[in-house]
């Protein structure tokens, strides 16, 4: 395949267009894979939601419950929506990388390379050379969190405003932190708790345990407070327009035009993406900070990054 490409390159520009090849049938299927989950989520919501008058602030709907021996396992809207987001992101990634080739550049490939380069640059500047392999994980976390929050734009329940989902991610981060703290063995791990003085150990343990709690509360609280404020403002504007315009406003709440949309741009788009960035950033900083680099590289000189060896 490689030889073929070089021949095409030699022939000149018109031939270069050939491999971009337009929209193949597989691409169409992948785009469907991106869009269908959202449609499925909306359909599920329409099927299960009970019509109510007025406003209501409530948690995720429960679609069904499985009876398990320990305790029943409810399948909630938040779980289903986060699965849908995962399918959608997988479709997006496959679409970007479909038909990727060396030395033949298409628009899609440029976007994919840009994403990969940005993720690697972010991880390398924040975590250092040793953690370079972390970039797929961080990029996946960033994408999952951001698109989960953006789901509210499609009128769906954003999975990140359910504490259970975000706590799952935070526990994953906590496991990572603990694993990297233990890199030099359990004894060194225990020694980090008595760091300035052994009397500080209880405080250190509490601050260690507070990390996942604060991370999950931060993400969940930001998204949930945004949706609560949006609902309250929409309800207040509805009531106000009914007061001013009378019965006409019952069919068309006039004052609801405008302001809720602006709030939605801040709370749904800006805040959601910012929280995703902050969650990924904190994961990187905590994990890199927990790793006892000097001690570890002293014990395993072969694993030390080459850049520091050269410098």
């Amino acid at each position: 395949m490689n030889d073929n490409n070089t021949v095409e390159l030699a022939k000149g520009k018109p031939e270069m267009k050939q491999p971009t090849g337009g929209f193949k049938f597989a691409d169409f299927l992948l785009v469907l894979m991106m869009l269908l989950p959202i449609a499925a989520g909306i359909t599920l919501k329409v099927l299960f939601a009970t019509p109510t008058k007025g406003i209501e602030i409530k948690g995720p709907m429960i679609y069904c419950t499985f009876e398990l021996p320990v305790q029943p396992l409810p399948i909630t809207e938040a779980q289903v929506n986060s699965w849908l987001v995962m399918i959608s992101i997988t479709g997006f990634a496959l679409f970007l990388t479909h038909g990727i080739r060396a030395r033949v550049y298409t628009k899609r490939q440029f976007i994919a390379e840009w994403i990969v380069e940005k993720a690697e640059g972010l991880v390398k500047t924040n975590m250092g050379e040793y953690f370079a392999g972390f970039s797929p994980f961080i990029a996946a976390m960033l994408a999952l969190s951001a698109f989960s929050s953006l789901m509210s734009l499609a009128g769906l329940f954003p999975p990140t405003s359910d504490l259970n989902v975000v706590t799952g991610w935070a526990i994953l981060t906590f496991i990572l932190i603990t694993a990297y703290r233990m890199k030099c063995g359990p004894l060194t791990y225990l020694k980090t708790f008595g760091d300035p003085a052994p009397a500080m150990a209880p405080l250190n343990i509490i601050s260690e345990l507070a990390t996942p709690v604060s991370m999950s509360f931060r993400h969940y609280g930001n998204i949930l407070s945004g949706s609560v404020i949006s609902v309250l403002v929409a309800a207040g504007l509805g009531g106000l327009s009914e007061l001013i315009f009378g019965s006409f406003a019952e069919t068309f709440p006039v004052l609801r035009v405008g302001l809720p949309a602006v709030l939605s741009i801040y709370f749904d788009v800006f805040s959601g993406v910012l929280q995703a960035y902050i969650f990924a950033m904190l994961t990187m900083l905590y994990t890199a900070g927990a790793f006892p680099a000097d001690e570890f590289f002293k014990r395993h000189p072969d694993k030390a990054p080459k850049t520091t060896a050269e410098a």
């Binding site: 509360f217 931060r218 609280g221 407070s225 910012l274 929280q275 902050i278 904190l282």
Partner: peptide
Amino acid sequence: AVAETTGLY
């Protein structure tokens, strides 16, 4: 974001 934590609690 870090300063916001207490408010979010």
